[in-house]
Design a protein around this nucleic acid. Sequence first.
DNA 1: ACTTATTGATGCCGTTTAGGTATCAAAAAG
DNA 2: CTTTTTGATACCTAAACGGCATCAATAAGT
Lengths: 305, 305
Amino acid sequence: MDLSKLKAFVVVAEELNFRRSAEILGMTQPPLTRLIAGLEDDLGAKLFERTTRQVKLTGTGVFLLKEGREIIARAEKLEHEVRAISRIKGGALSVAFSTTVFLASLPKIIGAFQERFPKVTLQLHQESRPRLFAGLRQGQFDVGFVEGTVEEEGLAADTVHDEALGVLLPKQHSFARRKQVELSELGDETIILHPRRDNDRFHDTVHLLFRQSGIKPKVYVKSDWESCPVLVAIGKGVSLTILGTQQCVFPETKFVPIRQLSLPVSVVWNPENTNPALKGMLSFVAENAALRRKNAVCLEEGLKF
Amino acid sequence: MDLSKLKAFVVVAEELNFRRSAEILGMTQPPLTRLIAGLEDDLGAKLFERTTRQVKLTGTGVFLLKEGREIIARAEKLEHEVRAISRIKGGALSVAFSTTVFLASLPKIIGAFQERFPKVTLQLHQESRPRLFAGLRQGQFDVGFVEGTVEEEGLAADTVHDEALGVLLPKQHSFARRKQVELSELGDETIILHPRRDNDRFHDTVHLLFRQSGIKPKVYVKSDWESCPVLVAIGKGVSLTILGTQQCVFPETKFVPIRQLSLPVSVVWNPENTNPALKGMLSFVAENAALRRKNAVCLEEGLKF
DNA sequence: ACTTATTGATGCCGTTTAGGTATCAAAAAG
DNA sequence: CTTTTTGATACCTAAACGGCATCAATAAGT
């Protein structure tokens, strides 16, 4: 089906007069008559009941009018949006990350986005979960990335991808050559954990995991985020973490994913925000999300957090 | 913009290879290259970043891919539905009415529908409100019409039009020549009312109206629906009713609307019902609803019932 | 009852557009 | 350095689309 034909149909359906419709469409009556006849042929449906003196819609026509209007409106909206997005030269996008996502997924998301939208200036903010949501509501941020799923009043959200959850090990460790380990195998290990911050979803999740699996790891060495890999590197224990940038920093450490455990990462945005760069980011994220759905059973399935 | 071009774009965006895409589209590579170039020209946006050896999407392209897929899917769905609707020859639609709507609005709705969909066989059912909803849920009815607004779990609803609420008067009555009356003017009249049935929204509304306006009409002569106009005709009093078929039955009576009072009529249907005739009815009703929004402040605004 | 005006349908023609063939230039692979 | 693969270009043909003239049917005016 052809949108231009559909548009012509809508005009005729509204005017119920071929001559006037043709004038509105900037053409003459005969080709319009043939155009409508062609549309009816294509669809295999009579759209108008016409005598030489009056035109009226058939039931099928009534339906096509209603739906056709919507499709045309949507296509035109799309066209405008595409123009708007392409016109972005020095557009700006204010992006907020929760700490966990900031450390783990930032290069994946931002690097690929920059490649696609090289002219968009990105402002990156590392924020706690509640301040991130507040910033989105107030328009301070255009888009946010947080771990877990999001259901916040007034904000829209989607899952971007699932980050693999695993252990950071010293390279000499017996697990370091394995492709993956079971959570239950960590019972004998010394786990290095960072202190809990406000609204720290990752921290809560780790504790929940241990409680649910019945594992009581030997020692908790409280540390901060940045020094965890250092302590692992010097053999003080292993650290529960997310596959991310950390693993590359210390070549003395190795990341091994835990079987069937992953942490979803979500995009969050304010649906009232009209920044065209935001639309670009959202479609970009949607495209990638479709590609990544292949591995790892989502943590969400077993644990609602 | 042209849907066929958009379809071609989507294929290229998915394949990222002009030759293969052309094959999928059943054409050769050169026209496809020109077609995409033309689309980029139309939209004033670069959609692909291409070297002679590799094609990749630009940010704008990513956006257009996501949105374009949806529009194409919708257009194709529309095409199928139109074919389905037009294919209805001996299709059937089971329609249920509440008593009030049955008496007042049936010819308006059904008559016009029959004109549009002459080949659809209609089965009409007069049902109480709860049995009507139950029937819709069970698939016994395809569509229902009731007075008031509807918010029922599992059912979809829309307002069709607003029925004028008014008084049925003997022709000799002093109000009979007026264009409209105020509700407050009815304080001195003898009101003829029918007995209340189960879930009788109309009946409840009338009582609510009197209570809210502080009017206490002289006498309630209990009667049944059918004999109300008879009693009016012989001068026993006036009857509160809806502009409908009744007024035509007895030439001795006259209907006069009450200012700013009307009763909305809603369509209700089961969103899971796939009967193509239902889609026809819904678009038909939507078309008419758009036309009728002009008169009468809706009763709903003052009275939620 | 007859004429007139208006409406949608049809036949014919020219222009525009879309697709096909042949070929080119650039870049990766051997 | 040759071969292969890729998207771009030039040129041609055919179908589509729109315009003009005209017809047939019907409602309105006389």
